[in-house]
Every structure is written in C-alpha cells, then in structure tokens.
C-alpha cells in the first residue's frame, strides 16, 4: 500500500454507518481497496462499509458510485500552492 508521508494531510472517506445499504459498489470501485464491508449491522439492518483507515487517494470513485445520497462524503485536503 502506497503510504503517504505522515506530515502531509491525506484525503479520506467518511461513511455514515446508518446510511449505508451494504451494496458494495464503493468497495468494487475503490482503486486502493481501502474499503470493506464489515460484519456489524446498522440500525436498519445493513452490514455497512468501513474505511480501513489509511490509503485513500481521494479519487472520489466511491462517492460517485454510491447510490445513497447521504452515505459517503470524501474529505480532500487543501491543495498545496
């Protein structure tokens, strides 16, 4: 896995466990394979997706592939100028 130097702020996805319907589209499209379906069920009964915690490159694939409007946000750090 392509580790970024620790002092450079990294992009990261935020998955709302409640909104995820566990379809797996984000897992399928993540080029870095840093998303996974967990075993834990949310209040609506879905085994929601989790971010493994590191390795996101901010490609937004998961955001666009996710059909649920409120399930995924992606944080992108400010661009260096």
């Amino acid at each position: 896995m392509n580790q970024l130097p620790p002092d450079v702020p990294a992009p990261y996805p935020v998955i709302d466990p409640l909104e995820c319907k566990s379809c797996g589209r984000c897992v399928m499209v993540c080029p870095k394979k840093v998303l996974e379906l967990g075993d834990e069920l949310n209040a609506r009964g879905y085994a929601f997706t989790r971010y493994k915690g590191a390795g996101c490159i901010g490609c937004l694939n998961c955001f666009y592939a996710c059909p649920e409007p409120n399930a995924i946000k992606v944080h992108l750090p400010a661009k260096e100028t």
Partner: peptide, 22 residues
C-alpha cells in the same frame, strides 16, 4: 423511519443518477 435514505433497493443505480443530476 428512515428519512435520510432513499426508497431505492440496495445497489440500484437510480440513486447514482439522482446524485449526478443534483
């Protein structure tokens, strides 16, 4: 109960299209 989720089935791409149009 779930007023923050769509009515679409899990994995259905209607939601993807909604997001792109929005």
């Amino acid at each position: 109960a779930a007023q923050t989720a769509t009515h679409y089935c899990p994995g259905c791409e209607h939601g993807v299209l909604h997001k792109l149009i929005g």
